[in-house]
Design a protein around this nucleic acid. Structure first.
Lengths: 153, 153
DNA sequence: ATTATTGAAGGTCAAAGATAGTCAAAGTGA
DNA sequence: TCACTTTGACTATCTTTGACCTTCAATAAT
């Protein structure tokens, strides 16, 4: 018997294929269809629909809450390049290192200067000051990758 | 009934678009149309049509009372407007609140949709997961403001 | 003319309801 | 054994509801 998570993964991918690349699900409802606990949906999303694999995920809690999953397109050559770089990034990145990535993207015209500025603003040390020093690099990596993937949507 | 608030928000925005930017509603009447309690109208206004989000709200009680919602005028678009909003933002912002800001900027055409996506990507709960929950709102506010300021350059 | 009363709005706030997220222990299988 | 999966108790966030409060305009009472 195939693993439940694999089934859920396949199901979600099918849904995405059936649409134009974006779906919106309700965690509880989906968990119900698969007879599993709701948090298993999170597990599937966290392990299979990551930025590294080219997915952009948003969610909202409370009444009317939902999870939105978008598959980004990597058909264009610039996009493919970007995806490779995202995959090569670690999950703990310094400001300096982030800026090197960003400058390169601008140099290679993968992103615009304006976008580069926004990326730098979002990944600067200054902006993460309120975060404990041990986790800044992780947050920065997460922000950087998520923003880059959002550009591929 | 899921997403009632979103429906009401959309309805009000539509009304505003259909006019020259100012509408006058009666709380009870609107609540009636949506089959909800009157105070839900307040909830929608308080969370989506605040001054800092580009709307000006006035109201009057008693007989003939009403709520007037005005969208900040076209003349105030652009850098000054953005700067003004940035200054009025608190320093602790939830994802939901950030997204409302961002949606409004896109609506106002102060930023592009692509830039809106990047802002959302950078201010999502998901991306700040590694930060202690008590400081997330502060980091988010910092990211949001810094990114917006970077657009003013 | 002045004041008191009343009914018709809108405002507040906190509890209850509805979702989703987290984390770590327990289970599984190669 | 070791990495991956499954579960569930606990947490965080957003929405809906309702009881109670405040304000205003019209008008009745003095």
């Amino acid at each position: 018997m195939a693993k439940l998570s694999d089934l859920i993964e396949a199901f979600i991918k099918q849904m995405i294929n059936d649409t134009d690349g974006t779906i919106e699900i309700q965690r509880n409802e989906l968990a119900n269809q698969f007879n599993c606990v709701p948090s298993q949906i999170n597990y599937v999303i966290d392990t299979r629909f990551t930025t590294e694999r080219g997915y952009y995920v948003e969610s909202r809690r409370g009444g009317g809450g939902h999870i939105k999953i978008r598959r980004v397109s990597i058909e264009h050559k610039g996009k493919n390049f970007l995806m490779h770089i995202i995959n090569s990034m670690g999950d703990n990145i310094s400001q300096q290192s982030a800026y090197v990535f960003i400058n390169n993207f601008v140099d290679y015209e993968v992103i615009s200067e304006r976008e580069g500025m926004m990326l730098k603003a979002a990944t600067s040390d200054k902006v993460l000051m309120a975060a404990p020093v041990e986790v800044r690099g992780y947050i920065r990596a997460s922000i950087l990758k998520n923003m880059l993937v959002s550009l591929l949507v």
